[in-house]
Design a protein around this nucleic acid. Sequence first.
DNA 1: CGAAACTTTGCAGGTAGCGCAATAATTGAG
DNA 2: CTCAATTATTGCGCTACCTGCAAAGTTTCG
Lengths: 217, 217
Amino acid sequence: MEITAPLGLRDKKRAETRAKLERAAVELVLRDGLAHATVDAISDAADVSSRTFFNYFDSKEDAILGVRDLELTDEAVAEHLARTDGAGLIESVVKLLFWVIGPSITTSDLHVLRMQVVKAHPELLSRQITQMTRMADQLTAAIQTLLKKDPAFAGDPAASLQPTADVLFALCGGGLRVAVKEWVTEGSATAHDQSASLTVLESRAIELVREVTKKIQ
Amino acid sequence: MEITAPLGLRDKKRAETRAKLERAAVELVLRDGLAHATVDAISDAADVSSRTFFNYFDSKEDAILGVRDLELTDEAVAEHLARTDGAGLIESVVKLLFWVIGPSITTSDLHVLRMQVVKAHPELLSRQITQMTRMADQLTAAIQTLLKKDPAFAGDPAASLQPTADVLFALCGGGLRVAVKEWVTEGSATAHDQSASLTVLESRAIELVREVTKKIQ
DNA sequence: CGAAACTTTGCAGGTAGCGCAATAATTGAG
DNA sequence: CTCAATTATTGCGCTACCTGCAAAGTTTCG
């Protein structure tokens, strides 16, 4: 997850421009609505041309949500799994998923504003889901390695691991989504302590999944 | 779920045009790729103007996926719940979800082609998820009534029922999705006996969910 | 300083999607 | 059957999204 700090002037400027665009995007959407906050307007507010906008983001939505394509390498996933070793299956999977989507929620001070944006324009939420679904193959592969280590699934044939991982992915993803939803609606009232709410979100998701799997059938 | 058969000539033509557009959209995307299958091309293939295209669909994606806003009335849901009364919780929820999405799988022969399209163009998945999420509120409401009847959740406060229903929705939706995925990949080899594979699909989804909830933690 | 590498920008072009108004087809009442 | 009301189709024009390309500007590093 460590992102090497930009050293040169060039990288610094790039980071600044990106930040300005993200901020402008969020603020304009809040002020004018999603449809009226055009790429031109956002670019103007950030003092760059609209062509430059698309050098930074693939789409208007990406700018609003601050999507950066972190290239989830297999090594990074493996490293994360190693770091959270020893936890239960549910916990591990939720932590894995949260590790992926967490940063896009809490990275900058814009996240409070972003919550308001998502609240006002729920259609953007599907974008978040898409982002997760894009990495689904990698993540379910990682979940399969978790399953292999779990005693309950140890003897299972490899063929049944993929569907199991898929379902588990859906289950924990759902828990996380609900936790985020709660966090958004409650969070707009009270100010967020970043580091605190981070872990709260995660454990709430785990709690939700546990609750369901425990009581079911 | 009963959709009243169109009687007049006007409605018949509308249905025909719509079907032609859906088919043309899927076939052109498969043949030429998502980017090259323009609205103009699709409209031409369906013998209508591109302006007419937008009288039927809000977006190109909607046409490809055959999105129609079927108005799931509360009464219909209640009636279905009554019909499948007495089953276990998982079974009931899966049957509920399958009851909703089943028709769109088996109604038209386009469904298999659509799966290929989604496979080739995963970015469409977000749209599909959005489609399902559109009915999420009604369905999770129905799931809540199921929860109330279940002894394991009988004493729970109403406030905790909503998140539980959401997670359950994600879980069973995931199981169903995996079952459909298997059905499509296997089914491309062997010819489908519609009525037979229908129930198989449903029970496979139930099996998947059971498997996970049983073995977990 | 000066060449290499990278960024910004304008321009041109293609596509998506919508509002409007004219035209054409269907329907239902008389 | 006829005519008026309703609804569908279509062309036109417009805005916005997004991309490729090449010119001009900026940063880096030897």
